[in-house]
Write a protein that binds this DNA or RNA. Sequence first.
DNA 1: GTATTTCTTGTATGAGTATACAATTTTTTA
DNA 2: TAAAAAATTGTATACTCATACAAGAAATAC
Lengths: 195, 195
Amino acid sequence: MGRRKIRDIRHEELIEGTIRAVQAKGFAAVTMADIAHEAGSTAPSITYYFGSKDRLMEDTMRHLLRLLRAALLARYRAALTPEERLLAVVEANFADRLFTPAQCALWTQFWANAPHAPGLARLHRINRARVASHLDHELAPFVAPEHRATVRHVLQSYMDGVWLEAAQSSTPPNAATARAEARAVARLLLARPPA
Amino acid sequence: MGRRKIRDIRHEELIEGTIRAVQAKGFAAVTMADIAHEAGSTAPSITYYFGSKDRLMEDTMRHLLRLLRAALLARYRAALTPEERLLAVVEANFADRLFTPAQCALWTQFWANAPHAPGLARLHRINRARVASHLDHELAPFVAPEHRATVRHVLQSYMDGVWLEAAQSSTPPNAATARAEARAVARLLLARPPA
DNA sequence: GTATTTCTTGTATGAGTATACAATTTTTTA
DNA sequence: TAAAAAATTGTATACTCATACAAGAAATAC
């Protein structure tokens, strides 16, 4: 049982610090010193481990994307019927681990900055395509092909909007409530796909 | 017919320049010089007319909020039935004048920055409350009180999400398509409010 | 226990930026 | 047209910040 390398420990500390610091100050306003302070480290250390501020931000987003993927896979494992599989995709977005004020804030910052940072834009494109593909696949048993793209778009927009609003709200979001609402919306869309 | 004051002309030019410059570079990265250049002016001129960068940003957002309000009122005027009034609120968000790449980008920047700028936060709070109140009012004839908050939340999240996605997309959004989809979503929610 | 590698941090640098200020030009007024 | 007011811009300033660099500390290997 090899002890965890210092490198891995620092990476995790600094990414956690980035999440907290970005929530507090925003992507653009946050400084290396802010982040380092949040992680109990120093600015040059960030350069040492991540190379640059930009790469730190990208690695932090990659971390969030991994969490999302893990939540999805966990729910997939427990899903037996086609409906459960669709709901797994929808509810994964509101897993307790993900749907937190800090992460909602970070996603909002991500959305605002992706158009102006190629590295972030790439991550965003990949993630969005992945979610779309999952949704499409799980919608297939329920929605006729000519309506599928619309239903997917409505679902995806709705989910993003919920995240966005959670980032604005002063009260912390309730993941269980969000899941219930999302489930209801998904079921509604299955029952009656909008023309 | 008094000629328009230079002051008003410059205000408009600079706000238009801000919209274009922010779309290109983002709220935080954009410089006074960028904006001035976009408007065919100079940085000190902005200080002269707006006092500071922050106030320019706030005035620009106020301008967008005015456009939204105008779109809403215009559609209200033509709405005769309760259903038409509800659809007026929904469709106003996707009016041709509003649902443009530049404005979608600006709203995204606005959402990301509101939590960290008191002036923007105030605008955001006021606008959100106003839209919520309109929606609530127009939903009343269709949705039982115990479901109304949920339906409103779903609609509002969906609409925000559509804007968000439009800001990311490389192809310019189609306002007519967005209106049709939003109309379908609204009708679906009226027919079967989610539990 | 020495040598080597890994890690940490103090300091320096250089780029970038909002805005104050003052001088100048343009417009308006009388 | 003369005087006053409004508008414009060049320049200077004060500041922040990412990051390079180098010296030093700690950990690891041999």
